[in-house]
Amino acid sequence: MRYILPIISLLIAVGLQVNLPSGFNIFGAKPDLALVVLIAYALAADPMFGATLGFAAGLIHGSAVGISLGSFIVTRTITGFLAGLLTTRVFSENPIVPMFSAAWLTLVNELLFLLINPRFAPAVAFRTIGGECLFNSLLALLLYWLLKYLETRRKIRLVNARMRI
């Protein structure tokens, strides 16, 4: 039950990702929406949840791309695990934290990907990673605010319901 909403979010993110207009880019790099969703959920959970969700994210995204399924699964499982691990070590209400976390987790994810698929020209690869880190961190900030807003509303509704009792 805990995984249903994150997996639906991942499916929607991948569905949106494969339809992003070509002009939607920074330095030629597009955001990785599935990775942003994975990081957003995994940052608020434990390492095991992060790793399992990462596995699902890799399977969904890799299947949509059709190449290097194993690379997608392995890199996202590690990224999800690291994101979950980060929650147990660092916790902050400051929105800058998820923003920077998204940036460095994207960097780790893509460097791992390049380690497994070492065929890309370094100059192109680093420009792409730079753009993606920037994009993902901005999106993570927006998603963080959205999730926080939804969570606050849920808590208010819960408190109101208890007060009525």
Binding site: A51, S68, L69, V74, T77
Partner: peptide
Amino acid sequence: KTVFSFLALLVLGMVLGSAHSRAL
């Protein structure tokens, strides 16, 4: 348990990746 499950997921990912490459 967490580390063991994480490693098991990684191994499963590699097995799936290898099977996918073979299917391709």
